[in-house]
Design a protein around this nucleic acid. Structure first.
Lengths: 208, 208
DNA sequence: CAATTGACATACCAACTGGTCTGTTTATAT
DNA sequence: ATATAAACAGACCAGTTGGTATGTCAATTG
């Protein structure tokens, strides 16, 4: 048992804070609760972060940005068939998620809905995450067009934005409705839209 | 100048509260700010509402529910061509909305993202609004199918949910990105999806 | 016209909350 | 070994915030 490990302490703080924020929102998150979760004290916390806001910023930049990178940007960079990859990612994210998880929503969407109008620092950071995310989808779609996996007549950048927005909308509505069936119904329509992005011949044979 | 008008006072409180909530979220909304906006005092406010939460509930039930009724459910009930009506409503909502308005997002979505995991009372009320909203779209789509304005092979209930979710997602992403062009790009894709819900023959001639 | 109730005003409070200050312990460099 | 700085501990504080208690004034009722 190592008594001093600043990097791990910092990480513990961020992870505990993320859980609290995921549950209560940033404004509803209490510094005191982070201390309870981690067993640390205020001295430790304010040694690593100048204030509450800095914790939120660090979560966006480090944890959430990293998550998007690993779960979306990475897989999309390695594929020639973005539509299949997007469907696979969605199914992977959906699988093993209980109704309790669904009710909490997507941390990125939650934070951007809550904080982007209130604090410009949050907005800029979240926008940056969205920008990278969107660009990865757009790039993959464009590559898919060249390989014949995606219709030529769509604008990859516009569709990428729409896909991301739809996804966030689905997660957001499901969160409020607290209904797994509703989530899967919406996901089915989302897949339908994705399939319809395939070139005509293959869309006819791929769609059930 | 009428010195006593309880109904109007109540309404003034709700409207001021909605503006504050729209800007700061429910948790970020301060009772004190409502008093400043309305020029009332705590005695008046707590005479009309038992606590802060009751103000939030009343806003959802009365103001937001009413808005959805007037702007969406009404028009959808009076149409035979739901796709055209949906596009018209969206354009109407979009028109005359400045970037500042866009940055604040949709109050219903904001509230449901922030409060539905935290407070069951909020969640139930917001879910009820979503349910009526979705049902109105679904009913209109089904009617459109019978009139030949909508493809027969789609499930109105599922598509209705997806449409609503996509719309909320678009508004949510645009809010964070603070970018009118991005909003219009996503809206264009949304219209594309709507057009594609038309029967085959007419979709070919209606789509530009 | 008295009396009772609804509609507000004002002062006040207790709890909460982010943040600070001082002190202590551990690691590291010399 | 010792100085020095980083990593923490814990008490404390000032501002905020939702909510309350009491009082006043207007409106309605009998």
């Amino acid at each position: 048992m190592v008594s001093r490990n600043p990097d791990q302490t910092r990480k513990k703080i961020l992870e505990a804070a993320l859980e609290e924020i995921h549950l209560r929102g940033f404004q509803g998150m209490r510094v005191e609760h982070i201390l309870q979760r981690t067993g640390l004290t205020k001295g430790a916390l304010y040694h690593h972060f100048t204030n509450k806001m800095a914790i939120g910023y660090a979560i966006v930049d480090e944890i959430l940005g990293q998550d998007v990178m690993e779960r979306w940007i990475g897989p999309l960079a390695d594929t020639v068939d973005p539509i299949a990859t997007l469907i696979a990612i969605c199914e992977g994210e959906r699988a093993g998620r209980t109704i309790d998880e669904i009710e909490k929503g997507c941390p990125i969407n939650n934070l951007s809905q809550e904080m982007s109008p209130i604090d410009e620092g949050f907005r800029e950071r979240l926008e940056a995450v969205y920008a990278r995310w969107t660009e990865a989808i757009a790039t993959a779609l464009a590559a898919g067009q060249q390989q014949g996996y995606v219709r030529e007549d769509i604008d990859p950048a516009k569709v990428a934005r729409f896909l991301l927005a739809s996804l966030q909308g689905i997660i957001g509505v499901a969160k409020c409705c607290k209904n797994e069936q509703a989530l899967d119904d919406m996901a089915e329509c989302f897949r339908g839209y994705l399939m319809q992005l395939r070139p005509m011949e293959s869309s006819l044979k791929t769609a059930s």
